[in-house]
Design a protein around this nucleic acid. Structure first.
Lengths: 190, 190
DNA sequence: GTCTATAGAATGATAGAC
DNA sequence: GTCTATCATTCTATAGAC
């Protein structure tokens, strides 16, 4: 379907240049049609953008849930650490993360409310699925620590590593990952 | 000086709308001149942007160094925790952080190298000044932990909280701050 | 240093033929 | 559903008067 193809290309263009920086001409060009033909599939640029954003939320949650399902039989330590590594690695290959973060962190002001609502749904869902992980594995970390606390502090480190990834220095990211994990694991186990 | 005034307004416009989304007309308008008059102060839009960015790095480092100087007599625990709180609080009042993060995380592609060089300088300097803090206070946390590790994992949490701040839900940020701090402090002291 | 006038290109969008 | 033709608007930028 051509509208999906348009959304795929739009995702990359919006990720690279932002909403205002991405032009319909460039998107159409890469799909192999004229920019006017886009209007047969989407009402306007705003419509294309919001459709792309809604897809990207779904996609992002799906990737995370599939990961946790795959790793379900592993230990807490293995699940969490491999999640950090695999998710960070994905950034290089998949523009969905980049688009999603750019849009949530710095939304075009005319979409602010819609995007905030979407990102709120996303983070709530993310916290819920990770809380499950910590709830099911209470025997693998200090029993004095609330699962909610363990989950929230893990996700904060996750976000912090995303920032370092955005800065774009792989060596530094590597050092931050091992250091953060070292202190975090000490923190929830000792 | 009018060129400083232009940079101040440009900072806000770039922070809110990004490089492509901010127009010279809007910037000039807010300063009270015509857009053509900007060219008496800056060669072009790129020049205005890069000048604004270079100022913002200097400003950001200055704020951090001044903070650490002010709090120099406090304990490690107090310094780090108050840094997190005061820095996050500043985001609401000062567009410099917003502009700086937006530019470093998602640079306009034509400036990619210059911005990467600037952000590299910034993060290196940030790590250096915080390493000093940890080096001078080795008696306040577990002696088995390398100061570098303690510093890097602290800055990762700091970045993670910045992300939560960008999402824009103050209640959730508050919970993440207390949870992360709880686990982090356990991690470096026990 | 600021203004008016203007160029030249690109943008999002619409109308209508096929 | 895609095309050509076209429109209105906006954008960065330059030239030259004051």
């Amino acid at each position: 379907m051509k509208s999906n193809q348009l959304k795929e290309v739009a995702l990359i263009q919006f990720a690279l240049h932002g909403y205002q920086g991405a032009s319909l001409a460039a998107i159409a060009d890469e799909v192999g049609i004229k920019k006017q033909s886009i209007y047969a599939h989407f009402k306007n640029k705003e419509d294309l953008f919001i459709s792309t954003f809604n897809d990207s939320i779904r996609n992002e949650l799906e990737v995370i849930k599939r990961f946790l399902l795959e790793k379900h039989s592993l230990s807490l330590n293995e699940i969490l650490y491999s999640f950090l590594m695999e998710y960070l690695d994905r950034y290089q290959k998949d523009h969905n993360m980049s688009f999603f973060m750019r849009t949530c962190f710095f939304p075009p002001l005319q979409f602010e409310e819609q995007i905030k609502s979407g990102s709120n749904t996303f983070v709530n869902e993310l916290e819920t699925v990770f809380l499950d992980v910590f709830d099911e594995r209470k025997d693998e970390y200090n029993s004095n620590i609330d699962p909610d606390t363990a989950m929230l502090s893990f996700l904060t480190i996750f976000d912090g590593l995303l920032v370092e990834m955005l800065y774009g220095f792989p060596d530094r990211l590597e050092k931050r990952l091992t250091s953060s994990w070292d202190i975090y694991w000490k923190g929830i186990t000792k």
